[in-house]
């Protein structure tokens, strides 16, 4: 099992910060993942979560991503998930039934991370 690595990369232009997630995001790392998401969200208003290089993600990880997105919206901030076509990520999201056509009630800006074609 690949160990998860969470790395915050500041965009040269400033406003956006990318949270690079690599390895396998499972329940064991869930607490770390939540804290990293929360910390990033606290500090910047444009968050990009890059999961394009993950090798696994379980339900806790998917839940956290969704919740982070909802929290960002409540704070008036933006959170994007970039999967770069990562098959592992998409299969996990599909299998858990996260893929959908419209976002949740919080998603007024149509930025739901699960709506197809978003990422």
């Amino acid at each position: 099992m690949d160990e998860v690595k969470l790395e915050r990369v500041k965009d040269p232009q400033g406003a956006t910060e990318t949270l690079m997630v690599t390895g396998s995001v499972t329940i064991c790392e869930a607490r770390d993942f939540r804290d990293a998401l929360l910390a990033t969200l606290e500090e910047v208003s444009e968050v990009r979560v890059d999961v394009s290089a993950i090798s696994g993600i379980d339900l806790t990880g998917l839940q956290l991503l969704c919740s982070a997105h909802q929290s960002a919206l409540r704070r008036g901030k933006n959170l994007h998930v970039y999967d770069g076509g990562n098959a592992t990520f998409r299969e996990a999201a599909n299998g858990a039934g996260f893929q959908r056509h419209t976002g949740c009630p919080q998603d007024r800006a149509c930025s739901c991370i699960w709506v197809e074609g978003e990422s």
């Binding site: 329940i27 869930a30 607490r31 993942f33 939540r34 998401l37 929360l38 969200l41 339900l59 806790t60 998917l62 839940q63 956290l64 969704c66 919740s67 982070a68 909802q70 929290s71 409540r74 299998g95 858990a96 039934g97 996260f98 959908r100 949740c104 009630p105």
Partner: peptide, 27 residues
Amino acid sequence: CTVVAQTDGFPPLEEMDPEGCYVYWDI
């Protein structure tokens, strides 16, 4: 089979127990 995960019960990130299950499904 069509699976739809329901995410409307999610608490804000800071209140979320990372090891708890918040999602439920309509199948």
